[in-house]
C-alpha cells in the first residue's frame, strides 16, 4: 500500500511541468524513504533524476516498494482539475493497475477523486557516477532561465566556460554572437567555485527545457567537469531535487 499526501498541489504541478517537456512517460519508484524517478529523453542526450524524500510529504506510507508507471500528459490533465492550494493524496494498492489522486480544497468543503491507469513501462536505470565537478556555480534560477532564452536567439549550441573570473555563456550563429558573463557577487546571489577551468559545448534547446523547473527553486546549481555531462540541479525545498544531466557536444 502506498499513500502520500502533499499540503499543496502547486508543487506537484510544478514538478510535473519540469518533467513533461522531456518525458512523455515515466516510472515513479516509491520506497519507505521516498520517491525516486530517473529517465532519459527519447534521444538519450539528457537524463532527469527526481528525488522526493518522505519528509517532503505531510503524510507518507509505503509498506513495500512499488513502481508507478505514469503518462505525464494524463497526469497533467488530472492536475489541471485541481487548484494549486488543494491538498493532494496519491494512493496505490500493492500490484495495482491504477493510481488514485484525491484533492481536498483548503477549506475541506470540496473533495475530488481521480483514477489514472498505470502503465507497465520497461525503463532501464543508469548508474550515475559520483562526480567531482571542477566548477560548481550557484545562481538565481531566473537568471539561468534568462541566459538560456537569450542564447537560443543566436545559436543551437551554447558554450559554457567557467574559470575563476566567472562563468561565460557564448553562442554564435548566422545572426551574430552573444556572450554573457557572470562574476561572483559579494551578496552571494552568484557563487563560483573553480578547481580547474572548464569549457564545454551543449545543445541549447535542452538547457531551455531544463529551465521549466525554474518555479521550483530560487537557485540553480550548475556542475561542470571535462568530458562529462553537465549537471543542472534544482533543489525542492530541503527535501529533494530535480537533477538534469546533459551530454556535451564532442569533436567528431
Amino acid at each position: 500500500m502506498f499513500e502520500a499526501r502533499l499540503a499543496s498541489t502547486l508543487t506537484l504541478k510544478r514538478i510535473v511541468d519540469a518533467l513533461r517537456e522531456i518525458l512523455n512517460q515515466s516510472t515513479l519508484d516509491c520506497s519507505d524513504t521516498g520517491i525516486q524517478m530517473q529517465a532519459m529523453d527519447n534521444s538519450h542526450v539528457s537524463l532527469v533524476s527526481l528525488c522526493l524524500r518522505k519528509e517532503y510529504f505531510e503524510k507518507y506510507k509505503c509498506n513495500r516498494n512499488i513502481s508507478l508507471g505514469l503518462d505525464l500528459k494524463s497526469l497533467t490533465k488530472v492536475l489541471k482539475c485541481a487548484n494549486g492550494d488543494d491538498a493532494v493524496t496519491i494512493k496505490a494498492a500493492d500490484k495495482a493497475d491504477k493510481v488514485e489522486l484525491s484533492f481536498e480544497s483548503a477549506g475541506k468543503e470540496r473533495t475530488a477523486d481521480y483514477e489514472l491507469r498505470l502503465l507497465n513501462l520497461d525503463q532501464e536505470h543508469l548508474a550515475i557516477p559520483e562526480t567531482e565537478y571542477n566548477c560548481v556555480v550557484h545562481m538565481p534560477a531566473t537568471e539561468f532561465a534568462r541566459i538560456c532564452r537569450d542564447m537560443a536567439t543566436f545559436s543551437e549550441s551554447v558554450v559554457i566556460a567557467c574559470s575563476k573570473e566567472g562563468i561565460k555563456f557564448s553562442a554564435s550563429g548566422e545572426m551574430g554572437a552573444a556572450n554573457i558573463k557572470l562574476s561572483e557577487t559579494t551578496k552571494g546571489e552568484v557563487s563560483i567555485q573553480v578547481d580547474e577551468p572548464v569549457a564545454l559545448s551543449f545543445a541549447g534547446r535542452y538547457l531551455s527545457t531544463f529551465t521549466r523547473a525554474t518555479p521550483l527553486a530560487e537557485k540553480v546549481k550548475i556542475g561542470l567537469a571535462p568530458d562529462v555531462p553537465l549537471l543542472v540541479e534544482y533543489p525542492i525545498e530541503d527535501y529533494g531535487y530535480i537533477r538534469y544531466y546533459l551530454a556535451p557536444k564532442v569533436d567528431d
Binding site: 536505470h125 543508469l126 564532442v250 569533436d251 567528431d252
Partner: peptide, 14 residues
C-alpha cells in the same frame, strides 16, 4: 565537426 554526445556513453546500465 562537432556532434552531440549520448548520455549512455557516460552513464552505464545498472
Amino acid at each position: 565537426k562537432v556532434k552531440q554526445g549520448s548520455i549512455t556513453s557516460f552513464f552505464t546500465k545498472k
